[in-house]
Each structure stands twice: as structure tokens, then as C-alpha cells.
Design a protein around this nucleic acid. Structure first.
Lengths: 334, 334
DNA sequence: TGGCCTGATTAAAACGTATCAATCACAATG
DNA sequence: CATTGTGATTGATACGTTTTAATCAGGCCA
């Protein structure tokens, strides 16, 4: 209750409040003797700076906002870990917002961020309408898009090349001698699904095949359950494809289970590759080939860009960073 | 840049700043006509309340701190989702801190929370020394322990009964006719591991067996990889146990893979049960029996308790809530 | 000795809001 | 009509910090 303020510290150390503020913010400006005296007073009184007062006066805070689509998804969890680590290294706190893919919740998160006067916002937008994000920048809030390419060069963005990833996956299947290839994907609205399909088609074209050959099986969700349903769908048909590319590992794991239970051998009868390389990809009974993304790194770099923009607004050059994914070959592909 | 304040709104609506503040905080106190006029002005000017100024003046914020041990663990992710949902329903923002099991990082998180003058803190403590948490309460910051039983009745806590869970798991194995039972666990310092073992021993005793029969295989980590290593360890011996209880699902999935690859049939040769019922438990090739915990609910209830303590500090009665886990029987056990 | 410079310290103002006592308008009551 | 009461609104103040200009104490040089 008895909240101890900078004044109490000043009184105890026999200096003025301004000096205490200086040892807090520009220690080099204050003489050695007084500094140690003030630091002692701080320790003795258990003073901790009132962040809100500081923010109010200084005009900016030491927090950033992070808005993700689904905190339950291991992909975003890894990103968040990267963000949190980098932010905490630089003395920033992270306010977490989960949009659950809902535009309404995303708006609400952004409002909270604005109220808190966060220094900047990291966001994986829940849809393609980015106009409203521009309004943030007008308020002086820095912005970095995460796992989404920039629309214009006047903003920062970090992403992983999903087209390349799709091409890697299907290229690998083709090198394994695959004939008919299926693409098991999620909702058409999801950009990542589209990009990965484009990559798959490019790989087919590069191999002198007709991209239209790619057989698409679209599911309403990207979960293991949906993957198993996709398997049932395929098994009800006359012939199976030689190889399957799943738009994420959850779909692939469900598919794997569905196939194995029906007596289909993986990879002997059907090759199978996923995307994301989540932990469980390597732990499944037939370990899963997949496309690895530098997820944690994505979070770290995005945060670094954001803080750079905050700390050096004039010299800061907006960057659009595109990471490249990696092919991870395991047992599920020939 | 041109940040619009409550004064600008007041000028536009032709009222005093105090009235605008009332519209914001106690709309029922202000006459209908002026209220709509003020609300219009707010909308037209794009005013958003300055959270820091509000916090500074009011003496308390609309944020809570959440400190977890490992944001990469699906268990904590689910908890965080529950926290985030409940907090956002009640108009609170969540500041996330990841301690990574490091005491130092935990301290740093708590400092950040204190600076931000969070209304309360939700924490899964990284070790058993809870004394320092008391100091938070002295600062007037509410506190709820998450997934950790309270030490005294003067604090709130929510947890899941790990002893019961352990007993459920081993009881189920015994009913399936298991003779020799193994317990695959993590570091001894982890309270959950100890509690689950105690439950397992109780189940043995209740069946008229000697608790000392329980064969313990301790691993340094609780990951799928560690689970597979545990399998190798077991397979190197003369005889396998009839049944295995793993302290979490990651260990169990690794164990499952190790056993199946060695040609051991599950559940025909060995029954296997895990703990946590993570998503992937049901998606593995032989779906995994497990102990389900109300994880998301844990986060929601913890947040509810915390906000109750914040909003009704006088009538608030500290509660220690202990949830009960559920047995989920799938294919991996007889 | 007087003037000037430098580095350290201080005093005071400002940030945007919430709160509380005071004021106001006006209707109801005696 | 005078009084009281009620509900709506206002004005002023304080919250804890940062920042800027001003002050101060010495040291240096002429």
C-alpha cells in the first residue's frame, strides 16, 4: 500500500527527485558518489519505478503488443517464445493478444494495445484487409507483420517463403518417383495454403509435368482429425495417389493414422510429407518428412526489427525479410 | 502524433473533461443527451483513453501478469488460452512472461509486472520457494497460484489433483490385469512427477500389492525423445514390464514409438498410459490412453479468482480449488 | 581578484486522467 | 413564495515521473 515514490528515494538520499530520475535513466550524467547513495536508497526502500507515470510523462512505454491467430498452434507458440525472449533481453514487456482468427477479437486486441500506448505491434493478420493497420502507424505505433509478406515497402515484415516450401515438398516427392500427387489442404482463405499449392505446381512444371495434375483435397480445418477424414475420403475411391503433400503436419499426422489403419503402407504404398516440422512429426510411428520453418527465429527477428524502428525512427529502414524453409527427410517418403 | 485527449473530446462535445471521464467510467451517472453527444465526439476524434494516465491517477491498472514455466508446452498454452479469454471478457489485458524454469527470468518477469502496476499476478512457480511471492501481496498485487497447491489458506490457488490422476492411471492398468508395472518419469524436482508417483503407489496398495513393486525409470527431460530413450533402456533388459505409466504424454509417445519399432505390440505385449491428454495422444498410430486435465478451465478459473480478489478485495474469500482429472481410455491399454 | 567555463544538481512544469467537493438548474414540497 | 432535495455537471487537484532551463560550486586562466 505504502507505495514508495521517487520523492521518498530522493529524501532518503538527500538529493532532488530529478537526480533520482537521472540515475535511473542516464546514470552517466550523475557523479559517482551521489549515484551510489541513490542506489542504496532505492534498495533500502524497495523502490520500483511506476511504469505508467513514466510512460505518461515520456510519451512512450516499454511494452509491445503481440497479436497471433491461434496461441494453441505450436507454430505461433514458437514465434511467441522468440518474441518474448528478444523483448525481455531489451527490457520490453510483451502484451499478448489471441485473435482466434476472429476479426472482432483482433480489433479488440489492437484497441487494448492502443490504450496501453504500446511502443509497437507485432501481428499475424487474421485476414488480408490490412488497411486498418495503417491507422496504427498514424498513431505513431510501429508495426511489423509476422508470417505475412508486406504489401508495400513502407512497412516491415518477416515471413517464410511458402511457395519455395511447397516446391521443396513436391520436388522431393517427384525425385522419389511419385506419379499422381495429392495436395491435402485447409480453407482457401488461408494465404499459406495457397502459396504452398503454387509452389507445388511450380515443382510439377519444373519437372515437365502438367501442374493441373495436382489433385487437391481441401478440408475445412487443419487439424489431425481433418487429416484422418481426408484419409477416409481418399480410401473410398478406386485408386490412391502415389504421394501426398499435406499443408501442415497436423493434417499429415491424421492422414498417416488413417492410412496405416486401413493397411496402406507408408511410404511403400504412399509417400507422405507434411509442413511445419512440429515436434510430433519426428515422434510418430512412421516419422514424418516435413518442411521446417525457422519459427523461433521469426519471432526474434520480427521483434528486433520492431525495436529498431522504435529506438531509431529516423535512421530505420523498413525491411521485408523472407526466410527460406528447409526440407526434412524422414521415414514417410521414399 | 497529434494525440487526442479527454480535453479535446470535452471541447468538441461542449462539456467539461470530468463529464467525459464519467461517460467513460460510469455512464449511468450522466444524462442520456450529453452521453450520446460525448460518444459522438469520441468517435469523430478517434479518441482512445490513455491507459497509463488512467492507471496513474486511479492507482491501479487493467492488466494482469501471467508467468508460466514453458510457453512451448501444450499444457501451459492451453492454460494461457483460458487466461487470455477470461481476461479479455472482463476487459483486462494480459502481460505474458515465460520463465523457462529459470528463477532469474521469473524474478525479472515479476519486476516487470510490478513496474507495470499489474492488478494481479497468475504464476506457476518455477520452484518451491514461495516466500518472495508474499512480497508481491505486500505491494497490493493480488496473486493466484496456477497448477500449484497453496501453502497457506491466505492465498488463492488452482490445481489438478495429481495424486488422484496417478492412482487412476495405475488403477486402470491393474484392472487390465497388469502384473509388473513401470513408472516412466521426469526430474525428481518436479512436484507433479512426485505426486503422480504417490498416486500410483496408492493404487498398488489399494489392490493389495506392495507399492515398492513400482519400477521407476527416471529421465532428465519429459520429451518424446526422452521417452524413446527410456524405451531403449527397457528393451536392453531381460524382461519387459506388463504395463507402463508415463508421467506425461510426450514421454508416452516416445515410448510408444520405441516399443513399436522394436516389434513390441501395444497393448498386447505392453499396456501404455500417458498423462495430460494432449491433442496428439489421440492422433498417434496406436491412440494413447491418458489422464485428462481441465487445462483451459484451469486458466479461466484462476483468472476469475484473481479478478474477484481485485474487484472485491474486502468480501473476497481466498479459495484453493483442486480439480479432478479424468481417465481417457483408448487403444494403448488393455 | 575577477571573469568564465564546466559539470553537477535542482526547481518547476507538464503529461492525461480520475475523483471529490462544490455548484448549478430545476422540480417538488411545505 | 421560500425551502429543500435531487440529479447533472463542473473545477480543481493529485497521481509519479521526465525534462528543460536555471542555479550552483569549483577550477582555471588572465
Amino acid at each position: 500500500m505504502a507505495t514508495v515514490s521517487i520523492k521518498d528515494v530522493a529524501a532518503r538520499a538527500g538529493v532532488s527527485p530529478g537526480t533520482v530520475s537521472n540515475v535511473l535513466n542516464r546514470p552517466e550524467k550523475v557523479a559517482g558518489g551521489t549515484r551510489t547513495r541513490v542506489e542504496a536508497a532505492i534498495r533500502e526502500l524497495g523502490f520500483v519505478r511506476h511504469g505508467s507515470a513514466s510512460t505518461l510523462r515520456a510519451g512512450h512505454s516499454r511494452t509491445i503488443g503481440l497479436s497471433v491467430i491461434d496461441i494453441g498452434n505450436p507454430f505461433f507458440t514458437d514465434v511467441a517464445a522468440g518474441v518474448e525472449d528478444m523483448a525481455s533481453e531489451r527490457g520490453y514487456a510483451v502484451i499478448l493478444g489471441n485473435s482466434s482468427g476472429s476479426r472482432l477479437k483482433e480489433e479488440r486486441n489492437l484497441l487494448v494495445f492502443a490504450e496501453q500506448r504500446v511502443r509497437g505491434v507485432l501481428i499475424t493478420p487474421s485476414d488480408e484487409d490490412l488497411g486498418r493497420l495503417e491507422r496504427l502507424r498514424e498513431r505513431g505505433i510501429a508495426l511489423v507483420l509476422v508470417d505475412h509478406p508486406a504489401e508495400r515497402s513502407s512497412q516491415c515484415a518477416v515471413a517464410v517463403n511458402d511457395v519455395t516450401g511447397g516446391a521443396m515438398a513436391v520436388g522431393h516427392l517427384l525425385r522419389g518417383g511419385a506419379g499422381r500427387i495429392g495436395y491435402v489442404t485447409g480453407p482457401a482463405a488461408i494465404r499459406q495454403c495457397q502459396d504452398r499449392r503454387r509452389g507445388a505446381e511450380q515443382a510439377l512444371a519444373a519437372a515437365g509435368r502438367d501442374p493441373a495434375e495436382l489433385r487437391e483435397i481441401a478440408m475445412p480445418a487443419m487439424t489431425a482429425k481433418a487429416g484422418q477424414q481426408a484419409a477416409e475420403k481418399l480410401l473410398a475411391e478406386d485408386t490412391l495417389p502415389d504421394a501426398l503433400f499435406c499443408a501442415n503436419d497436423l493434417l499429415a499426422l491424421g492422414m498417416l493414422r488413417g492410412l496405416l489403419q486401413a493397411g496402406v503402407r507408408v511410404p511403400d504404398d504412399v509417400s507422405l510429407i507434411g509442413y511445419d516440422d512440429i515436434d510430433f512429426a519426428s515422434a510418430s510411428t512412421v516419422s514424418l518428412s516435413s518442411i521446417r520453418q525457422p519459427t523461433y527465429q521469426l519471432g526474434r527477428v520480427a521483434t528486433e526489427l520492431l525495436l529498431d524502428e522504435c529506438d531509431n525512427p529516423d535512421t530505420h529502414a523498413h525491411q521485408q525479410i523472407m526466410f527460406q524453409p528447409d526440407l526434412v527427410v524422414r521415414e514417410s517418403t521414399r
